[in-house]
């Protein structure tokens, strides 16, 4: 057999085999969490220290100002900005909680501590072409309870929704990228915006499937940090996006809502709704991507998430 025949055969595979990967690629285009590298559409929200926020803001020209709502019932501030990425104009959205959401590390009691303890050794021994980022912990779980147990922080609660659960995972980051050997850092594609061991960010993500074509994600983050003035935030980068901000009060909580229309993405992935909330030191985010026909359904699911808050 010639290798070209195999390559060509892969190129002619039946469309039905692509259903999962196509759904994943749709999700990737606007995913809130997942890829560490920025992909088309929305990048993963990440914890940023204030010093990084300040650096970023210096380069950001705010458009339309910040969507600063009144403080009553709201948990944070949503800032919409614009930035230039090598000639490509990008819209940024940052959700910055009002409160100090840092968690005392001693309150994190799960097995994630074992992995964190191993991190310095992993960093010391990291080689440029290792397949695992030495400063990251990524674990997948069968259930959300398993994931929350792994973290072991009592205030990290999760709204439960009655949809097919696609995946549950935790992500943890420690050790500043700057502490890694330069060759390792470059090979791993890590930027300098990373974390020291005492500044661990932990995210738990649950992906659901609300219908065969569209997934949505619910995410909870926390951050341990000994450094003062280090609030966390969710940072999203969107290309050619029209944005609209909103708020909705449910059971005394006033959620911040960001609706985006990213016009240069393929149909079916253009519209997205993100909802933000911070409570008990944990930052919560809901994210759904949809097209015009599914607008009502997406809004209904987002509403359901807000009502399902424990």
């Amino acid at each position: 057999m010639k290798k070209d025949q195999l390559i060509d055969a892969i190129g002619k595979l039946d469309d039905t085999l692509f259903s999962e990967i196509e759904a994943s690629m749709q999700s990737e285009r606007t995913a809130v969490a997942g890829a560490d590298t920025e992909s088309r559409g929305v990048s993963k929200p990440r914890f940023k220290k204030r010093r990084f926020v300040l650096v970023a803001l210096a380069a950001v020209m705010l458009i339309g100002g910040a969507a600063a709502f009144g403080a009553g019932g709201l948990s944070g501030l949503l800032k919409i900005g614009k930035t230039d990425d090598g000639g490509r104009e990008q819209t940024t959205a940052e959700y910055i909680p009002f409160g100090d959401v840092r968690v005392d590390p001693s309150l994190i009691t799960g097995r994630i501590n074992d992995a964190l303890a191993e991190m310095p050794e992993r960093v010391r021994n990291a080689q440029p072409f290792d397949n695992v980022m030495p400063n990251a912990i990524l674990r997948r779980f069968a259930t959300i309870d398993d994931a929350l147990g792994y973290v072991g922080y009592k205030n990290m609660v999760f709204p439960r929704l009655d949809y097919e659960c696609v995946s549950v995972q935790t992500e943890g980051y420690g050790i500043a990228a700057a502490e890694l050997d330069a060759a390792v850092r470059e090979a791993a594609g890590l930027d300098s915006e990373a974390y020291v061991l005492s500044d661990v960010s932990i995210g738990v993500t649950q992906k659901y499937r609300s219908n065969p074509d569209y997934c949505f994600q619910t995410i909870a983050y926390l951050c341990t940090d000994y450094v003062k003035e280090a609030p966390v935030r969710i940072h999203m980068v969107l290309e050619n996006a029209k944005t609209a901000t909103d708020q909705k009060t449910v059971n005394g909580r006033t959620f911040t809502i960001l609706r985006t229309n990213t016009t240069d993405l393929a149909e079916g992935h253009q519209l997205a709704t993100s909802v933000f909330w911070q409570e008990n030191d944990v930052l919560f985010c809901f994210h759904i991507v949809y097209n015009e026909e599914c607008r009502d359904e997406a809004e209904r699911v987002a509403d359901e998430w807000m009502h399902s808050f424990p």
Partner: peptide, 9 residues
């Protein structure tokens, strides 16, 4: 790996 929600290794 990222598309499939798993680690590189």
């Amino acid at each position: 790996a990222s598309l499939c929600g798993m680690s590189e290794s």
